[in-house]
Amino acid sequence: MTREHITTTINGDPVEFLCDAEQTLLDVLRDELRLTGSKEGCASGDCGACSVTLDGRLVCACLVLAAEVEGHEVTTIEGMAVGDQLHPLQQKFLDHAALQCGVCTPGFLVAAKALLDRNSNPTETEVRFWLAGNLCRCTGYDKIVRAVLDTAAEMRG
């Protein structure tokens, strides 16, 4: 079987990899590149645990073929903190105890960042609907929504 040779940008860095045509972006991130911060919860786009951005658009990495990212830009949870500086969302998730088991947390953070990049002042309802594709079974969402609203307020200054 011939493998696809893909050249792309991940978290700002040039990356090349080989993949099978069937492999998803999530498969490659995890199994080939060992960027395991993106989680597989369902492999059908129903849980959001593998949320990444593709050219700035929030997507589920399980619903993108790895070969599709040729020439595009991918960002994952591993690209969120800058050096030892956590993104304000990451810090607020900690401050608000917006995680219990933590497996959904990378997906929520990537999704929430995509929201705040577009809308610096979302309402609670906007936050809830934006994040409806990210399942959390531990927290009941309360502290996650609070953390996102608080981050937005802080980032607005």
Binding site: T36, Q90, L99, G102, T105
Partner: peptide
């Protein structure tokens, strides 16, 4: 906490 908000924490898979 930091491991879990940065994607560093290692889960089962």
């Amino acid at each position: 906490g930091v491991d879990k908000v940065t994607g560093r924490a290692k889960f089962g898979a």
